[in-house]
Write a protein that binds this DNA or RNA. Structure first.
Lengths: 191, 191
DNA sequence: GTCTATATCGGGATAGAC
DNA sequence: GTCTATCCCGATATAGAC
């Protein structure tokens, strides 16, 4: 692994947890097993290092998402693919949603950077399929919002729900997985 | 209004948007129309000022929530009350969820502070009502998670969805309101 | 209680040796 | 490319006059 990748990997871990303002270059250097000067050698400033991490954060989701929603498959397959992909991605990177939302709260202008990587996502296809399938009886937009909410929110609220529902971390992780089929069923039942 | 309340009000606005690490005492002082020294006179340190704001953040929700879920009403009324209260509260304070989640990400230990104010929330009553009503056919826990997700997530993701769905801020605000009846219908339809 | 002025320090960034 | 030493600014916090 290159030094640059090593830095990015550990910078990601720190930035995801503490955000731009809360992260310390010293801490990133320590975790990466190098010194501060090296960070500035590879990524001129903290800001630039952050931008790299932020820009990459959504690429995990975005590329595959565009593929899923533009694919030439039927609606059931599309929904199943979305839910499975989202839950799997979040299982690997549960910190991303809060990280992104928090940074957008601090700096709303950065939303352009977010859409630069995913502006290819077009819901037109999804909407059409829903309208056709339900003969206009189901609001496709509301269905989309609900689907995303049901997938993502349980990851966002994890620490609170773990405690509120009196679960161990392991039990809650299992619950998140079991929700895949649950969410798919809920959404499909509305078609 | 007392000076203390004036400080808290503006500190809340800054902390909600920028978090503990990103907020600046100078900025809070400016917005409050006083100087930095006054902040330290009323709240010894930045940390203590933040704790006050953080501790109060969930009280808006918590008190009423405990009341809703322990109330001696039927299930339909309980669900309706929860959704309306949550959406109304979030409309007034849309920044709270991201603020709380971000701080928990930075400092997981603070979750105890969160539950100190809302440990009275008991879902036992809700679960019982659901089990009875559906003769055990509906998972009450999943129903609860879904209900919260459908209410809260659209507020959390607001800036992204506004852009992704090509809406104006005003249109999205309207959509959030119209979701009250939508969410209630969705949840009730599963009983 | 409210202000101005200042102490103190943490942390981003750079210089320069190797 | 990698390190040590250091600069320097910004931000919290305090001292002390009024």
């Amino acid at each position: 692994m290159t030094t640059e990748d090593n830095i990015l990997q550990h910078a990601r871990a720190i930035f995801f947890r503490k955000g731009l303002a809360g992260a310390r270059m010293q801490e990133i250097a320590d975790y990466a097993g190098i010194n501060k000067a090296m960070l500035h050698y590879y990524f001129k400033t903290k800001e630039q290092l952050f931008e790299k991490v932020f820009g990459q954060a959504f690429e995990v989701f975005a590329g595959k998402l565009a593929e899923i929603f533009s694919g030439d498959v039927n609606l059931e397959e599309m929904i199943t693919a979305y839910v499975n992909h989202t839950v799997d991605s979040l299982t690997e990177n549960p910190g991303i949603p809060v990280f992104v939302m928090n940074e957008l709260s601090y700096n709303p202008a950065r939303i352009t950077q977010l859409f630069a990587g995913e502006e290819k996502i077009n819901l037109g296809n999804f909407k059409e399929l829903v309208e056709k399938k339900t003969q206009g009886k189901t609001d496709a937009e509301a269905l989309f919002i609900d689907m995303v909410a049901l997938c993502v929110y349980p990851f966002v609220i994890a620490p609170v729900f773990t405690k509120l529902l009196h679960k161990t971390d392991q039990q809650y992780k299992h619950l998140l997985q079991s929700r895949k089929v649950h969410v798919i069923n809920q959404i499909l039942s509305r078609l």
